[in-house]
Each structure stands twice: as structure tokens, then as C-alpha cells.
């Protein structure tokens, strides 16, 4: 679709506003992997309620919008279950080892010119591009 980039910019601006509000209001970095990871590995301690509320908003807002406007968006996540499981494990392990993902290192890190955020983002984008170049374009596997 020709207007994809406009929706991208608009949605991106909303994501940036979400991160700005979380920073200026709550004094926290809006990193999806950090917020969930703390709940999963038990390091959240006395911050579990605010993390849970963030997740309620993150999961719940799309529910509201798709119901109100009668949308049925698709993730188009096909592929064998084994690939999805491997992907999930790698994303979970990798983001927690690196202490951040596309929102924490990407949106929040790059915007403050954090060397860690910039290097992490270059590495995960580079690794992602190399993965598809090999597995899809060279070997036709995914």
C-alpha cells in the first residue's frame, strides 16, 4: 500500500509519545523486554503492579481498537511451530542478555545517543538482515 509509510510515521510518533510519557511521567525507560522480563524472572519485586498495568495497556488497547472499528489485523506469522519456538527462545534470551530490545535500546537508547543502544540496534538489525539473506534468499528455508 502506498500510504504504509504515513501510517508508519504516525504509529511511530505514538510509540515515541508513549516512551516520552513513560520517561517524563514515571521516570522509566519504556523497554518491552525489560518490563516483561522482570515479571518473568522474578526481579520485578515491588514494581510488578506497574509492569502488569503497562502490559494490560499494551495488550488491551489493540483489543479495544479492533473491536470498536471492526478491524481484523493479521500478524501473518506462519511457518512451522519449531521455528516460532526457536525464534521466541532467541528473542527472550537475547533481549534479556543484552538488557533491551527494539523499544529500549532502539527507541529510547538511540534517541539519547546512548552508545549501548546504538551498538545493540546495529547488531540486532545486522543479525536480522544476515539471517534473512542466508535462510530466505540463499537457502530458501523460511
Amino acid at each position: 500500500m502506498p500510504q504504509d509509510w504515513i501510517l508508519g510515521l504516525l504509529g511511530g510518533a505514538l510509540i515515541g509519545c508513549a516512551g516520552a510519557l513513560y520517561l517524563l511521567g514515571a521516570g522509566r525507560i519504556m523497554g518491552a523486554s525489560g518490563i516483561v522480563g522482570g515479571l518473568v524472572d522474578g526481579t520485578a519485586r515491588n514494581t510488578w503492579a506497574e509492569r502488569l498495568l503497562f502490559l494490560v495497556g499494551l495488550v488491551g488497547a489493540p483489543v479495544l481498537v479492533t473491536q470498536i472499528f471492526g478491524l481484523s489485523p493479521a500478524t501473518n506469522a506462519t511457518g512451522p511451530g519449531a521455528v516460532l519456538i526457536a525464534a521466541g527462545l532467541l528473542v527472550g534470551l537475547g533481549t534479556r542478555l543484552a538488557n533491551g530490545c527494539t523499544s529500549g535500546h532502539g527507541v529510547c537508547g538511540i534517541s539519547r545517543l546512548s552508545p549501548r543502544g546504538i551498538v545493540a540496534s546495529l547488531l540486532y538489525i545486522g543479525a536480522g538482515m544476515a539471517t534473512l539473506a542466508l535462510l530466505r534468499q540463499a537457502w530458501g528455508l523460511i
Binding site: 525464534a87 551498538v119 539471517t131 535462510l135
Partner: peptide, 19 residues
Amino acid sequence: LILGSLLFGIGWALAGLCP
């Protein structure tokens, strides 16, 4: 940071999903 980001990037590309 380096190892984690590389692993994350591979998984991200495999499924097209990040957290």
C-alpha cells in the same frame, strides 16, 4: 550486550516478532 543483540536479531528475523 553484543551476544544478546546478535541472538535477538536472529530470532527477530525468524519470526518477524520482537517483544
